[in-house]
Amino acid sequence: MCAMFTHNMKLAEVVQSDFNTLNVINRFGVKLGFGEKSVARVCADYGINTEFFLEILNAYHDPNYFPQKHLQSFSVGEIVEYLRKTHRSYIDEGIPFIEELMNRMLEDCENPGEIKPIVKFFNDYKTELFNHLHWEDRDIFPYTLAVEEAYINGTDASEIIEAMQKYSMTDFLDEHDDIESKLYDINTLFIKYVPPVSNQMICVRILKEFSLLQKDINNHARIEEKVLAPKVIIMEKELLQKQ
């Protein structure tokens, strides 16, 4: 059993018990050097909602812990802000770093032709992932925010309902799993079929990055599918009924 992180724990202890949480902490804009400060104190310093911060951290740390109902109690605005930052971290850091390692592996390989199919698979995946993330940033997130606004303020929802009839959150849910499966396949193919290259450490590092990215993307997708989408679907229904 993993111990849960709480508001009076030192943030440094959180990082020490699970180094990977740094990825998440970073997304909230919190920088290293938190000294002896507790989670609550750091959140206050940065103006972050401690409850939300903790739930995201705990859900990330322990895949069995997923307080779906509690997470749904946060606003769409808060959830979307975190999701957008996650997108940025894949686009700006996660994927480019793997790309760099892949290129180094190619340079290092005597017979690059053998690796080419896997590299190509990765590049295609990257394009698809980026398109997907951009589409969510550009179309889906603004839509969810508009649904929430109309729901809370009771403003005229006719435009949103029109958009909903073209593409609702239920459609979104139906199409949402291929991205994860492909990453899983790249990982499998890489482990089984990368030809022996002289610098094995690069391969090990690539696999480490894959597994981190996989964990992160799964967690991210879970927040979209189990938290954001159901929350928006409920609001969509109510907006429709009010019409």
């Binding site: 995946y125 291929d178 396949d185 499998t188 079929y193």
Partner: peptide
């Protein structure tokens, strides 16, 4: 094979010379 997607299966087939590289 533990491979779920069509693109993954395509790469598997190429790596194992079941189909040619040109399929890519």
């Amino acid at each position: 094979l533990g491979i779920k997607t069509v693109s993954g299966l395509t790469i598997y087939a190429i790596l194992n010379k079941i189909i040619g590289m040109e399929a890519l």
